[in-house]
């Protein structure tokens, strides 16, 4: 149980860390990575919570996580495409208001 709790705590930690990076980092690649870190945090938490003190491991959270990973992969692919598209039309892969804030 304490091990599971530890995993869950790490999951929450990753989520928070990712959120921070998402807000703070200007580069889009960093933002996308941050979202993926957050996602991993959520998945870790879900799996950890699923391993409750039962003889059989609950499969539902795992099903959830698999679906979540599929979604995360496609979302990441899409985000990367948009980012490439954006970086082609303007130097640096940043959102407009972040650019103006930097320069």
């Amino acid at each position: 149980m304490s091990m599971l709790f530890f995993y869950a705590l790490i999951g929450v930690g990753l989520f928070t860390l990712g959120l921070l990076a998402l807000v703070v980092q200007p580069h889009l690649l960093q933002k996308i990575l941050a979202l993926n870190v957050m996602g991993s945090g959520v998945f870790l938490l879900l799996v950890a919570l699923g391993g409750r003190s039962q003889p059989v491991v609950d499969v539902v959270p795992q099903a959830m996580v698999i679906t979540g990973i599929v979604v995360a992969v496609s979302a990441t692919a899409m985000a990367l495409t948009l980012m490439l598209n954006l970086s082609r039309s303007s130097p640096g892969a940043q959102l407009p208001e972040d650019q103006s804030a930097d320069s």
Partner: peptide, 26 residues
């Protein structure tokens, strides 16, 4: 494209929070 990018980041963030919430409920 930049608007869509921002939209995507926001909507993914929202979904993750939602997913975490329903995970807790389950």
């Amino acid at each position: 494209v930049s608007a869509a990018m921002r939209y995507l980041l926001s909507t993914l963030l929202g979904s993750l929070a939602f997913l975490l919430g329903i995970g807790l409920l389950y």
